[in-house]
Design a protein around this nucleic acid. Structure first.
Lengths: 192, 192
DNA sequence: TTTTTGACTATTTTCGTTTATTAGTCAAAT
DNA sequence: ATTTGACTAATAAACGAAAATAGTCAAAAA
């Protein structure tokens, strides 16, 4: 990625993060990055696509962080699951532009982001499913019923936590108890 | 409750349920109930309060259904928990006006309902907490950490399921696997 | 050739005004 | 104490003008 494009993306991320998607103008971003507006449109084709890139970069970072956890093939699957859930919430807590997509005002029109979120969901679901399958194969886990559906529900749970945690400012309060909850969840799927 | 008030409430529930809060006019409700609009305002003081009563009546019904489950003091706490979760989702699936409050368009201004939802949340949280405490006392359950927080998170999970289940029409698909998930959750908190 | 620029155009939002619809009132009747 | 419907008040929709902002492009720079 060219230095200009990088600069624009970083500035956009910071400005969107500060004022939100609506209250940030393309002029503002260009000016703030000391670039011409034309450059913004040369590298990104529209405001929506620019914001999309910003969110994608946040999710890419998250994916990267999570990949290194999932790839630790020697560890106990329960430990990986625990590490995944904690890391996921920690990184998301700093993904301020992703967090904006959780706001209700955003729903109406965020079709241009739908596929990005959906793809991330699919990716996570696949990772969790693989992990659980591996855990079962190794004799560490025991899951009745459809493993993929369990992965899906686990994801629904984690995503269900996002609004209370990040938008309603309960992160500090709830995260301290998150570990106990994970303990219960992992015990529930452990082979005894 | 007087027959007229009852009639108005039922009609309002049906009409709101069909067209939603915004697309339903007070004239429409009055006409549909074969009553004068003044009667609506005699019994309910505003459109918002009327809708509030409609939602309250749905939640009252839910509470009533759940109370009879929670009150079964002889049953195993795990069975009660299972029955609670399933019944909750079943009744909510028919609570069409409550479901409307889940819509993002509704968020912006539903302050007039906030306390109703919050009170229901508190009620459920209390019921779950009591049930878990009882289960621990009876030696059926084992929970590390704060029981109230676990109850809270369980509720977050159930509420997190509401949007995919009721607004995104996944009820039929997911509910059939719900039982397995509950099995995992209860195993996680069971004393072995 | 690729990238950058900023004056320019097109689109969208905002604001003020009018009109239509709907929420809410009340004196009279039951 | 409750019900009624004509009535008023408040809100939303429709519209055009003005302002703000998204998006374009020919020329310049790298």
């Amino acid at each position: 990625m060219s230095p200009t494009k990088q600069k624009l993306l970083t500035t956009a991320s910071r400005t969107f993060g500060k004022y939100g998607f609506y209250k940030t103008s393309m002029d503002e971003i260009a000016k703030s990055a000391r670039k011409a507006k034309g450059s913004l449109y040369y590298h990104f084709n529209s405001k929506e696509l620019l914001f999309r890139e910003v969110v994608i970069s946040e999710l890419d970072f998250l994916k990267q962080e999570l990949t290194s956890i999932f790839e630790d093939t020697n560890a106990d699957s329960r430990d990986i699951l625990r590490a995944y859930m904690i890391k996921r919430m920690m990184v998301m807590n700093t993904s301020i532009n992703y967090q904006e997509t959780l706001r209700p005002e955003f729903y109406e029109f965020y079709e241009f982001l739908n596929d990005v979120i959906l793809e991330m969901d699919e990716w996570e679901k696949t990772q969790i499913t693989n992990l659980l399958n591996k855990g079962v194969a190794k004799g560490e886990l025991e899951l009745p019923g459809n493993i993929e559906v369990y992965a899906e529900m686990l994801l629904i749970f984690l995503k269900g936590l996002e609004t209370p945690l990040f938008l309603k400012g309960q992160y500090e309060r709830l995260i301290s108890n998150f570990d106990n909850l994970i303990g219960i969840l992992t015990k529930g799927i452990s082979k005894l």
